[in-house]
């Protein structure tokens, strides 16, 4: 029983990190139609900046608050000077560009911080454990499990109730129509791209106390995030949430129950979804 509950918590905490990253990926795709390969690298950058701020200030919260906006600012430059010139071109240009950007960022991080692993301690208030039946469970993971839905709720409220959220959804639905009714799409795009990068970096900062910070962390997470986004439905917000939860739980329960095929589970599930609901669980009919 306690193993079962621990697995649920394990799955949820990993799922919540995946959710934050997938959320940015799916927003950028939903609104801009850009599949951003470099999204994982922005996640990684969030982790490194968090680590750097922790080193300077000694406080994890500084890293969590200050790191993501810097990544968002960088992505404004990326959107303005790299992505914007190729919007009109074939989609393969975007894939190549973002892929190249990923290589560039990964190597850039290596140049600045070196190839070594770095370790970030969770803030004191979240660093202990709570008793969990006969064992214990880390507070930081519980924090992730609670934070995920809160961020999700915040985003949902933003998209549902605020003017900017509504504009975003409108642009995602029909870009041309939005332009006709006076939405300034270029600025919107810059904003959306920066917002997605901010979410990725937030995920990265939150992941820093949870896993070692190293140059390849982005490559590893981007694949799982793509699976989440495809399972949930490209561009769907609730889809990203449900997809991330499914993947997190598949990971934890698969490891316990069917270890031999655990590695293949996300891909098998992805194949089933693609065969039965090619647009994903929450994808529109279109």
């Amino acid at each position: 029983m306690e193993g079962f509950l621990a697995n649920i918590l394990n799955g949820l905490s990993w799922g919540m990190l995946l959710f934050l990253i997938s959320m940015g990926l799916t927003t950028v795709f939903g609104v801009m139609g850009v599949l951003n390969f470099a999204h994982g690298s922005l996640f990684m950058l969030g982790s490194y900046l968090c680590m750097q701020f922790v080193r300077w200030s000694g406080s994890f919260w500084m890293g969590l608050v200050l790191g993501p906006p810097i990544v968002a600012a960088l992505s404004i430059l990326i959107e303005r000077f790299l992505l914007r010139p190729i919007y009109g071109r074939d989609v393969s240009f975007q894939l190549l560009l973002t892929f190249g950007l990923m290589l560039f960022l990964d190597d850039g991080v290596r140049l600045i911080w070196g190839p070594a692993y770095h370790v970030v301690a969770p803030p004191a208030i979240l660093s202990g454990v709570i008793p969990f039946f006969s064992q214990s469970y880390p507070v930081y993971r519980i924090f992730l499990v609670i934070l995920g839905p809160l961020v999700g709720l915040g985003l949902w409220m933003f998209f549902t109730f605020t003017r900017w959220g509504k504009i975003l959804r409108a642009a995602a639905m029909d870009r041309q129509m939005a332009e006709i009714v006076g939405v300034r799409v270029p600025i919107l795009f810059t904003g959306v791209f920066a917002f997605g990068a901010w979410l990725a970096a937030l995920g990265g900062a939150l992941a820093a106390p949870h896993q070692s910070v190293g140059p390849a962390m982005g490559e590893r997470i981007i694949i799982e995030s793509f699976i989440v986004v495809v399972i949930g439905g490209m561009g769907s917000f609730p889809g990203a949430f449900v997809g991330a939860l499914i993947l997190g739980l598949l990971n934890s329960f698969g490891t316990t129950w069917i270890p031999d095929v655990q590695m293949a589970l996300p891909y098998l599930f992805l194949a089933v979804i693609l065969l039965t609901r090619p647009r994903g669980l929450f994808g529109g009919e279109a």
């Binding site: 193993g3 621990a6 697995n7 918590l9 394990n10 799955g11 905490s13 990993w14 993971r141 992941a207 949870h210 896993q211 962390m217 590893r220 997470i221 990971n251 934890s252 329960f253 698969g254 490891t255 316990t256």
Partner: peptide, 10 residues
């Protein structure tokens, strides 16, 4: 793997 919690729980 970056999240080892399922293995640890096991």
């Amino acid at each position: 793997t970056t999240d080892f919690s399922p293995y640890i729980t096991k």
